[in-house]
Design a protein around this nucleic acid. Structure first.
Lengths: 191, 191, 191, 191
DNA sequence: AATGAATGAGGATTCATTCAT
DNA sequence: TATGAATGAATCCTCATTCAT
């Protein structure tokens, strides 16, 4: 037979990569970054160990891949906010979408924090995020400025701290931190 | 040399234990819980590996020791609040003490989160904390009740989420999350 | 396109084989036999891994191919000596040609020795050479016999040891073992 | 019981190290550097894999250890020659001792060459030898100068090439390169 | 004939824990 | 009580070789 076309190969590679990332996300969520083994990822993904190294040159590199992939997912939540700005309605919708993610993508959040707190991978993430904060925070700063808040940047940071804190606690003790009952307070204080 | 009295021995044990915990805290802060090795702890503490196992029966057990030790430290911050309750002045003082700890004991907080997010050690912590939340949250619930807040428990959780979120972000990007400039907002919204 | 004739196909095969061998020689010279990988050979030669296995059934087999190929090259240096015998003039010319090879084909010599010293490939070479030494040494034995040397076979071995020793040292420390300044001595003692 | 004294520990470490080197030498001689596995070394030495890494931080490092150890052995052969210089009698004795080593320490020579030809470990060896050649060659240069040889340095290199060439060939085909029958020629031509 | 994705056995290395002294 | 040598299971990673296309 004739060999696969470059297009076919590219497609195949994309699929495999997604397959590996999905499995890695699952395993690392359950075991934690350091405790998860490449063998587990291989078994879970149904892909041989060797092939994984064909796509990611090391375990650390795999984590980087996961993070890149996940950040793309996160961006989707923001939707057009970075371009068109925040409104109260959009803010509330964002809160709901974010809370939904806290519920459904625990996998990612757990890894995100775990990774954040380890020196090595942190550098990877920071490199990825560096210089994007200003751009990322912009809609909030504008929003609180328009609302006439005396310290828009401070309020922006405060708002983000609230989200991270809720996420962290919900991750650890979901029943103690029920998102629904926190929602009204969050809306009232932040929006 | 005359044999030591039991009291002296007990004192010696306590000192050694503190010495080990301090070293472990230092190593784990730098390397992360999973990446830190018992050999490093031994080298840093100046105590032989064998002897460490005389004081802590496993690495996990050592982590438990660190957490117990650290929780004691944390309790000191609360002072008499659990017994005598919160007042606005005490609340503000508590905020300042907490922020000071975020600055000075990054070591502990880093490990605290890292540990929180790994399945295994988490159970240890949870076992330690279980059933204490009600008791621990009490002063806040009372405080917000007295203030006439419509959802004292929700506000209590919200307040704690704020603290955790600030801590998490300050840990990762201290210059982006300056505690001083957040302080007025925190006081205004929470107290 | 019209189908190629069998002759064309055979020619193509020969070219491909040479292409692979050349690349393998290059890679193995740089990395050493054991450290060189088939993937590197594929990349360097511009021929896919799969196709390489169409020409050489294993890595070991590829090495054998290289050696066979290289021995042919070596034989060319000897020219008609095996048939017509050695004369002083021919001997000197041979020395010069050999020294030139030490300079230009380091690749091959390095691999030659590396291969010699590893048990597995050595067997391959020995199998190839077995029984040829007598034939190969003949011109030297005859030469030293005619010169009236009391131990022609010993002198033959001695001469070959000299060449190998020079090659080995020149390979490792070219600037310490300058071939030109050794030439007069070699001529004087061996010819 | 009381712990071992530093002296006891040092002695123990020396013994273990020698034990490992001996086994490694044996395994690498039989299998070649690259093909030898740390597991084999462990099995042969009767020492656990883990402990080997307590003494040598990597496989490459182990090779370095072997070479250092072996070079010491080699120096013993030279005896007082570096200080007191060469005489014909000493030269002949040296030839005999060297030939004896070619016979008995094939292990070392094989590894020596193998290592020489691999880029990475070569640097280790070169670093060890660098700048020692002049000192090492001195007795030979003096010897040939006194004999009135027109090119003492060239003759020195020639002599060393002879030894290396004989060693290389004897290693590969001992029966074809009988050291005894080469001895008279070597003595006659070099001494 | 040609490609490179896929496999998996094998090898280097780490580290919690034990144990002789 | 105190030491650090010793163990070996567990883990990451490599690479010759195969195979679907």
């Amino acid at each position: 037979m004739s060999p696969r076309t470059p297009q076919q190969l590219e497609l195949l590679r994309q699929e495999r990569k997604a397959q590996i990332i999905e499995a890695a996300l699952e395993v690392m969520a359950a075991e934690g970054y350091a405790h998860a083994t490449m063998s587990q990822v291989a078994r879970t993904s149904g892909i041989s160990k060797g092939l994984i190294y064909n796509y990611f040159e090391s375990k650390e590199n795999l984590v980087e891949g996961i993070l890149l992939f996940s950040l793309e997912e996160l961006k989707k939540i923001l939707g057009d906010i970075p371009e068109t700005g925040l409104t109260p309605e959009k803010y509330i919708a964002l809160i709901d979408k974010t809370f939904a993610m806290y519920r459904d993508k625990q996998v990612f959040w757990r890894m995100y924090i775990a990774v954040m707190l380890q020196e090595e991978p942190k550098r990877i993430v920071l490199r990825m995020l560096k210089g994007q904060e200003a751009h990322y925070f912009r809609p909030w700063v504008d929003y609180y400025t328009q609302k006439g808040h005396p310290d828009p940047m401070g309020m922006t940071l405060f708002a983000h701290a609230v989200f991270d804190g809720i996420m962290l606690n919900h991750l650890n003790q979901p029943e103690l931190f029920p998102l629904e009952s926190l929602r009204p307070l969050v809306v009232q204080i932040l929006v």
